[in-house]
Simulated assay, not measured.
Amino acid sequence: MTDWLLETTDLVAGYGEASVLSGISLKLARGRTMALLGRNGTGKTTLVDTIAGLTTHHSGTIRLVGEDITRMRPERRAGAGIGWVPQERNIFRSLTVEENLTAIARPGPWGLEGTFAMFPRLKERRGNLGSQLSGGEQQMLAVARALMLNPKLLLLDEPLEGLAPIIIDELLSALKAIVKGKGLSAIIIEQKARKILPLCDEAVILDRGAAVYSGPSQALLTDDDLLGRHLAIER
C-alpha cells in the first residue's frame, strides 16, 4: 500500500478551455497537513476544487491512497474519502444543526456526539436552523459536516475568512485537535499564513498556477524573506 494519501502529477486544470493550474505535482502523506498559500488569484481555490472534482481537467493525474480519481465525479470522490469545505460553506440553511450533520453522515469514527464535542457551540445550537447561526457558527458547521463524511482528506478553503478574533481562536483550536490530536490529513487554504502554518506540517506557495515553494511549514514560518516576497507578509 502506498505511503502517500494524495498525489497530483503534472496537474493542469481550470474552467472551460482556460487553464489556471500549470503542471502541479505534490504529495501528501497520511496524517500530514499542508498549508496552501499564495496571493489572491494564484490558483489555490482552483487546486482544491480540482482535487474535489469541480473544475475542468486538462491533463495530469490525481491519486487518493493510490487510486486514480482523476476522472471520478465529485460525489464519488466524497465517497472515496474527500471532505470539502468551500468558502461559501454550503450548509443547509433551512435544516437544523443536527439535521445538517446527520443528513450527510457516513459510517466511521466521526459521529454526532464526537463532532459536538469538537464544536461545543454547535451542540448548544443543535436545534437552531442553519440560517439562525452566526457566520462563525456556520463555518464550524461546515467543518463539522465534512467530518461527518468521515473523510481521509479534509480540504478547507479559507476557513478563517471574515471571522471575529474570538471565533478564529476557537476554530483554530478545533482544527489543531482535528489534525494534530486526531491525525486527520488536511489541505488548508488561508490568507492568515502566520495563523495556519503552526498547525501544518508542510506548506506550498502558488504563483500563477505553479508551485514556487514546497517545504516544511516551520521553515517557511521563520523565513521572513519568502513570506514577504510571495505573500506580502511583513515581519
Rank of each mutant, 00 (worst) to 15 (best):
L231K: 12
G31E: 05
I188F: 10
V12G: 01
V204G: 12
G83C: 03
L221R: 10
P151T: 05
V20M: 11
E190S: 10
Q139K: 11
I168M: 09
A144T: 02
P107H: 04
K195G: 03
E124P: 01
D49A: 15
A174M: 07
R32T: 07
G43S: 12
I91V: 15
A117C: 10
S59R: 14
L220C: 12
D224N: 15
L112G: 08
R208V: 03
V143G: 07
I196E: 03
L221W: 09
M1P: 11
L129V: 03
N128H: 12
G14T: 08
L133D: 04
N40I: 15
E158Y: 10
L129A: 05
V20G: 01
V143R: 15
R125A: 13
G162C: 00
P216R: 15
R106E: 07
L147A: 02
D49H: 10
I188C: 08
A35Q: 06
N90G: 00
K176T: 11
P74N: 01
G79V: 08
I167H: 05
G23F: 04
T9G: 05
E124C: 00
L155N: 07
Q139I: 04
E190T: 10
S217M: 11
P151K: 03
K44L: 12
L172E: 13
L149K: 05
E17I: 08
A35D: 04
P120T: 14
Q87Y: 12
V143N: 13
S59C: 06
S19N: 15
L129G: 12
I69T: 14
I62L: 09
R194F: 03
L199Y: 11
I69G: 13
Q87M: 13
I187T: 02
V212W: 06
A105E: 06
P159K: 10
L37Q: 08
R208K: 14
R73N: 14
V65W: 00
N40E: 11
L153M: 06
L147Y: 10
A186Y: 02
N90M: 09
W84G: 02
V179G: 01
H230L: 03
S173Q: 14
K195C: 07
E67C: 06
G209D: 09
S173P: 01
E190G: 13
T96M: 05
G41W: 08
V204S: 13
A80E: 12
L154D: 09
S94M: 06
A193P: 08
L199W: 04
Q138E: 11
A144S: 02
G38W: 00
G83I: 01
P151A: 05
D68K: 05
A52M: 03
R71H: 13
A103H: 05
A232S: 07
D207S: 14
L184M: 09
G135A: 11
R125V: 05
T9N: 14
G41T: 10
T70Q: 03
Y15S: 13
I188V: 13
P165I: 13
A146T: 04
Q132V: 00
